[in-house]
Amino acid sequence: MPSTRVVTGHDALGRALLVSEGALPGTESFQHSPGFSAALVWRTRVGASVGVDGRIGDCAPGSVLPEPGGSCALLVTFPAQSSTLAAEVDGAAAANELCERLPGLGERFEADGFHSTDSIDYGVVLDGEIWLELDHGQLVHLRQGDIVVQGGTRHAWRNRGAQPARLLFVLTGAVRNGA
């Protein structure tokens, strides 16, 4: 599903202005993971500011994962598992594509989809339903409108529903303590 990204800022007098407006790149389905898409909406680094000459962030190449104090927003579509089971998927090609399209994050995925990041993540289910699986097997069923807050936990997403699930994630970079 196409999305439009609108970015606002300020002119030299401090008045609000439209900085950019256009299609959000990255919402197209992955070639090697049919029905899956993940688009970097925006990213901020430490020291982001607003106002005249404010630097609210960018979408320049580099890791999509935020450093401590930074943030990123991702729009992700998870296809229904029933549709992906029918498709022949080349696991190595899918993993390479994930790393190319989501640098820094793709490398954190294990073969079974589990991953963790050094961030506090806010996930909002926009459409569909999805299951959050924690590393010890606990499953949490989330539906449209539900919100999950994750504190760097190892987890995987499973769409056991019949329709695609679309989620918005905002990751805030954090420092990992302990094991």
Rank of each mutant, 00 (worst) to 15 (best):
V89L: 03
L167P: 00
M1L: 11
V52F: 10
A95Y: 03
G54M: 04
T8S: 11
M1C: 11
V149K: 11
I147F: 13
L126V: 15
T153I: 14
L102K: 08
L85N: 10
V124H: 04
G62Y: 04
L134S: 06
A156N: 07
R108T: 14
A23G: 07
G173C: 06
V175F: 11
L105P: 01
V140W: 09
D146I: 08
R143N: 13
D112Q: 06
F78G: 00
T44G: 03
L74I: 15
I147K: 10
L132G: 07
A94T: 05
R176W: 11
E133T: 14
N96H: 09
L85W: 13
R176S: 15
R15P: 00
I130F: 04
S83E: 12
L102M: 14
A39K: 00
V148A: 15
A48Y: 13
L102C: 11
G14P: 05
D135F: 04
A23Q: 10
L13T: 15
A39H: 01
H115R: 08
V50F: 13
S37V: 07
E97A: 01
W131R: 13
G22N: 09
C99W: 04
W131S: 14
G173E: 06
G22P: 09
A23H: 09
S71I: 02
D135A: 05
D112F: 07
P79A: 08
G161N: 12
P68A: 08
L75E: 00
G137T: 13
D90I: 01
P68T: 02
L18E: 09
S82K: 11
S63K: 01
Q81I: 08
S71R: 00
Y122K: 06
G70A: 05
A165S: 12
L24Y: 06
A23S: 13
I147L: 15
T8I: 09
I56Y: 02
S29W: 03
N96F: 04
A94D: 06
S71T: 15
C72G: 02
F114Y: 14
L105V: 09
L142R: 00
L17M: 13
G161Y: 10
L85D: 13
P79T: 10
S116V: 09
E110A: 15
H32Y: 09
G69S: 01
D90M: 01
A12D: 13
A92H: 07
H136L: 13
F36I: 04
Q81T: 09
G104F: 00
P66C: 06
S82W: 05
G128S: 06
S33A: 12
Q163W: 11
D112Y: 11
D118Y: 08
P25Y: 05
R108Y: 02
A86I: 09
S63P: 03
A111G: 04
D146M: 12
L40R: 02
G137F: 10
G106R: 04
R143Q: 14
S71L: 05
A162N: 14
S116W: 12
